[in-house]
Design a protein around this nucleic acid. Structure first.
Length: 548
DNA sequence: CCTGTAATAT
DNA sequence: AATATTACAG
């Protein structure tokens, strides 16, 4: 039974990655004469971009190991992630490189030129991969070593080892090599679809009936400080209102990154939720601010494209682990939904109210003290909030303790009924303790304090020497700030003498309690339910309900 | 299709 | 713990 090889080859896409023009031309002719679909690029970085775009479904890459940009191995890695067979070619054999290449997942390491017979049979590699992967996807694991678990580089090792296993042509036409979700047992996971209803009800029913769908995990990008800097650069270039993942991707011009990864990172950054992974340099720039060029134009798409709110180089002060109970139990405090739109609206000009703020749900351990965008934003836009902002943010972070506010401060006239209202009997509650303790420390300088409803426990604590006080101070994660305030703060919390309270007192000099209140939301019956609502009010009852 | 958000998987 | 992936919505 004759198998229409050419039909198979037609479906196979080969990318040549070589700056050697002659070789490329020759190979293109050869490949095309066998009906392969051919893409050529001259250097690895370009190839990586092509892969990143994901437009072409490359099956095989023929890569010059000596790509001028020295990225051939990175390309290899990326290709592995995409289940692409990579053949390294070289002008001169080098056993060391060959070994390295194979070790890192190259399918073959070949010396130029490639012979016609080899090209002719190239398709077999692809088919064999497909077959292998399908087997793996069905749960047949014999074909794979059990070693390597987390490493993204090993797909092809197995294939190399198992060379005796000559591919067999499957009768089924290979017209959907690409769409078939290839599955490797170690790297690919089965997933069931998760249903999520618009009613926000979470559908926990796991339907086994769902056909196993295999999904390939992307190459795991580490967002190094460097990479992040590029990211932020791109962001700054694009400017407020124009930061879309796709554009960022382009401006960054870093090969091997995909849009979704940028989007993911962007999401993190917008939420101020990103930390550099491991060691961070503890560089202390007194002012790492960029001027942010002040352009706050809105994009034509309205609310999209908002800049992330991190600085370019963020020293990551080690965050302390506080596993006190209340830390975990405190409700999420969604200051995010204190809608800046509303602030502006309340101000004067409702014309600015469309300015988009991403939902700033600030997670635990993130206290954004220094937000250049915020500052700029407020100052330039509405002149609201103003200079003392940072201090109050700090205070607020302490007050909320676990709430982790990312403060958007405006001159709203809200009053926090919650914080000081004795109706709320959360006195025995840990969270409440926190709150009150912070309160106490706040008031202690302005001599207003102790009026109504400081829980006994709190007072006791205080009288007992304010034991917890230092905890509260240390609580917020300062990792994102590198401004002056932060440093002072940081140095302060590192101090261990008995004067800490005094230091604290002198540093944080609060005279105007209104600033405190401005950070809090009025209680509202109006539960924000869907995002995207014009005016989301914070559901500040969170604190109460959580205390019960 | 691209974007944003939240949830969840790895 | 940091990223990736996904559902869902716009």
């Amino acid at each position: 039974m004759a198998v229409p090889y050419n039909e198979i080859r037609k479906e196979i896409r080969v990318m040549l990655v070589d700056h050697d023009k002659d070789f490329v031309n020759e190979m293109v002719d050869l490949l095309q004469s066998y009906n392969y679909k051919v893409t050529t690029v001259d250097i690895a970085s370009v190839a990586m971009s092509v892969l990143s775009k994901g437009k072409k479904n490359i099956d095989v890459m023929i890569i010059n190991v000596n790509s001028p940009d020295l990225l051939s191995f990175q390309l290899l890695a990326q290709g592995l992630g995409l289940n692409i067979i990579s053949l390294f070619v070289c002008d001169e054999h080098d056993a060391v490189i060959a070994k390295k290449a194979l070790n890192e997942g190259a399918y073959l390491y070949l010396k130029k030129p490639l012979h016609e017979e080899f090209i002719k049979n190239l398709w077999q590699f692809v088919l064999r991969e497909k077959i292998q992967n399908e087997k793996a996807g069905e749960g047949l694991e014999e074909n794979f070593d059990q070693k390597n678990v987390g490493d993204a580089d090993d797909i092809c090792n197995n294939n190399i080892v198992g060379e005796n296993n000559i591919p067999i042509i499957i009768e089924e036409q290979s017209n959907n090599i690409h769409e078939a979700d290839v599955v490797s047992n170690k790297k690919y996971k089965m997933r069931k679809k998760r249903g999520r209803k618009s009613t926000k009800e979470i559908n926990k029913i796991d339907s086994k009936s769902n056909a196993n769908k295999a999904v390939r995990r992307n190459v795991y990008i580490e967002w190094t400080v460097d990479l992040h800097a590029k990211f932020m650069d791109a962001v700054h270039q694009l400017g407020e209102g124009k930061c879309f993942p796709l554009q960022i991707l382009e401006v960054m011009n870093v090969p091997g990154i995909e849009r979704l990864q940028v989007a993911s990172h962007l999401q993190k950054c917008r939420n101020n939720n990103w930390r550099v992974s491991k060691e961070q340099k503890s560089i202390h720039h007194p002012s790492g601010q960029r001027s942010t060029s002040g352009s706050q134009q809105r994009s034509s798409r309205g609310k999209f494209g908002t800049m992330p709110r991190l600085q370019t180089n963020v020293p990551n002060l080690q965050q302390q682990k506080y596993h006190r109970d209340q830390t975990q139990r405190v409700p999420k405090f969604l200051l995010s939904q204190l809608n800046t739109d509303e602030i502006f609206t309340r101000g004067e000009s409702s014309t600015q109210q469309q300015i988009y703020r991403p939902q700033l749900q600030v997670q635990p351990h993130n206290l954004c003290i220094d937000n250049p965008f915020n500052n700029t934003f407020l100052l330039t836009q509405n002149n609201v909030g103003g200079g003392k902002q940072q201090q109050h943010e700090i205070l607020f972070g302490m007050l909320g303790s676990q709430g982790q506010q990312e403060s958007i401060i405006g001159s709203t006239s809200y009053r926090p009924e919650l914080a000081f209202n004795s109706e709320y009997q959360h006195t025995q509650n840990d969270y409440n303790l926190d709150l009150n303790a912070a309160q106490v420390s706040t008031y202690s300088h302005s001599a207003i304090m102790f009026g109504t409803n400081i829980g006994n426990a709190t007072i006791n604590e205080l009288e007992a020497g304010n034991v917890n006080f230092q905890h509260y101070i240390g609580e917020p994660n300062m990792s994102d700030s590198n401004n002056i305030v932060t440093e002072s703060y940081a140095s302060f919390i590192e101090g261990s003498d008995s004067n800490e309270k005094e230091n604290y007192a002198s540093y944080f000099n609060f005279n105007n309690m209104d600033y405190l209140f401005q950070n809090l939301e009025p209680p509202s019956d109006n539960l924000p339910y869907e995002h995207g609502r014009e005016f989301d009010h914070v559901y500040s009852d969170d604190q109460v309900s959580a205390s019960i």
